[in-house]
């Protein structure tokens, strides 16, 4: 069964075609790397999946359902690309707020918040206001809020961008753990080496068009394949 189907999505913003008939789907339990250069349409695709942007045409199916009912998003975790977290809150308050939005019962809330904090390793900084967090800590907080409802489908927009090697290692380790829990993950990154390490499938996008969609075992060098596709496309 497909956890996610993106069907013929097109989007025009300011008369520019950002996405042109984008099609791909994610099988349950797979990790898919969404590869593309800056401005290729990765973030727009993610935002359309999460109902933040309305497509001009096409549709999104999440477990074969149109996400008209907001409840389906309880099973979907999302990290936007570099969001600004509410900096007037500390990590505990922020995660508690997210639990309320997810309608998590109060009795379960504190243990879930505690587990999420431990899972991403920010337990020493929970009472500090988010505005004092480093980029890596914010990314970990993003993952923590994403994991609160224990979603089965995870959409991660550039979760590794701007991180130092230790930060990248930590986030990749968390993603590896999620992989072993059989979660379905779609994530984008510029660092093809990271994508190669963890993904079971690659979807490539350039100028709003899907230029490749292949299982990881069909290539030994994703960077070479991506570059050859880009050159062929242009």
């Amino acid at each position: 069964m497909n956890a996610l189907s993106v069907q013929n999505i097109s989007k025009t913003i300011n008369k520019k075609n950002i996405l042109k008939n984008v099609n791909f789907s994610l099988e349950e339990g797979t990790i898919t790397g969404f590869i593309g250069h800056n401005g290729a349409g990765k973030s727009t695709t993610f935002k359309i999946i999460m109902n933040l942007i309305h497509p001009n045409s096409g549709q999104i199916l999440i477990w074969d359902e149109k996400p008209e009912d907001h409840d389906i998003y309880k099973k979907v975790g999302y990290i936007p690309e570099s969001p600004l977290y509410p900096d007037y809150l500390n990590a505990k308050e922020f995660l508690s707020y997210m639990c309320d939005l997810l309608n998590i019962p109060s009795a379960k809330k504190s243990s879930l918040v505690k587990d999420a904090i431990l899972q991403v390793g920010i337990e020493k900084h929970t009472s500090k206001l988010i505005k004092y967090y480093s980029k890596g800590m914010k990314q970990k907080l993003g993952i923590a809020q994403m994991l609160l409802a224990q979603p089965s489908l995870l959409i991660m927009d550039e979760p590794l961008s701007g991180l130092d090697p230790i930060g990248r290692h930590d986030i990749l380790k968390i993603m590896d753990d999620l992989k072993s829990e059989n979660k379905t993950i779609l994530f984008s990154s510029h660092i093809l080496y990271d994508i190669e390490k963890i993904c079971s499938r690659y979807v490539m996008i350039a100028d709003g068009t899907i230029i490749g969609d292949i299982p990881a075992n069909q290539t030994n060098n994703i960077e070479e394949l991506y570059l050859s596709k880009i050159r062929k496309d242009s």
Partner: peptide, 9 residues
């Protein structure tokens, strides 16, 4: 920040 909130159910 809103994208962290309205992507919840």
């Amino acid at each position: 920040t809103v994208s962290l909130i309205i992507t919840k159910p």
